[in-house]
């Protein structure tokens, strides 16, 4: 355990990096998920096919492959572009933070697309009919009836998506992001204690997953408070 002394700081900042990626990717995931679901539920055949292609590709490809493709692909492209302007430039890349966030957001966003789509379809049509019969406009129905019903249905599976996100951040260490796994590798270099360090990383991630799971539980309680009546 003493091996870790001196590294606490670095692990702390590594954890902060994980948290930052998570938040960024989470926002992007919700965005991609909503756009994807919207496209799949729309009447446009084009939108449906593009969204369909998106979900198939990003759910069927290993995460590490997507990540490496993004990072190295964009690096190669950017480098080529930069070299057109200045032949001296050797290597330009998107910062691993953004390449990583974008990649994992696109992947989990594909799953979120399906979840959101299912949740939208799961809204009781009777409620929509009642709302229209009362005279609410399409937009009002959407905001006050559809969305409240939909996010409650989406919450449990979306909790799982959030867990996927946090765990996928570990992969970003492969492209050089200085999160906890990366720090661990450096620590191992000097201390020679791979087991200790990697267990610590595992514990950190377990901590994060626990926080997420608990938060989702609280949210679910809040979401379903109107159902607690009686008994």
């Amino acid at each position: 355990m003493e091996a870790i002394t001196g590294w606490w700081d670095d692990f702390f900042w590594g954890s902060v990096a994980v948290a930052r990626i998570f938040v960024t990717a989470l926002i992007l995931t919700v965005l991609f998920g909503l756009i994807g679901a919207g496209a799949k539920l729309s009447k446009s055949r084009v939108a449906k096919s593009i969204a369909g292609g998106y979900t198939v590709v990003f759910r069927g490809t290993p995460e590490i492959l997507v990540l490496l493709l993004f990072y190295f692909g964009s690096a190669v492209t950017l480098t080529a572009i930069a070299q057109a302007f200045d032949p001296e430039i050797k290597f330009v890349d998107i910062p691993p933070f953004w390449a990583g966030s974008l990649a994992i957001a696109l992947i989990v966003g594909a799953y979120a697309t399906e979840t959101f789509r299912g949740a939208f379809l799961g809204v009781d049509p009777g409620q929509i009919e009642a709302s229209r019969a009362l005279g609410l406009s399409n937009l009002q129905t959407f905001i006050y009836v559809r969305i409240p019903a939909m996010w409650r249905l989406a919450l449990p599976p979306f909790g799982n998506h959030m867990l996927s996100l946090i765990k996928d951040t570990a992969l970003i260490s492969i492209i050089g992001l200085q999160e906890t796994l990366f720090v661990a590798e450096q620590a191992i270099g000097t201390t020679g204690k791979p087991f200790t360090m990697y267990i610590l990383v595992g514990a950190i991630y377990l901590g994060f997953s626990t926080i997420i799971t608990l938060s989702v539980m609280v949210l679910e309680k809040y979401a379903n408070r109107h159902l607690e009546v009686g008994r």
């Binding site: 020679g192 204690k193 087991f195 200790t196 377990l206």
Partner: peptide
């Protein structure tokens, strides 16, 4: 189940491959 679903599989792989030889 909690531990194995709550940690990244990459970390699990590293613990087993790089970590276990330490013991």
């Amino acid at each position: 189940i909690y531990i194995f679903r709550g940690t990244p599989i990459l970390v699990q792989i590293f613990i087993i491959y790089y970590g276990l030889p330490q013991l």
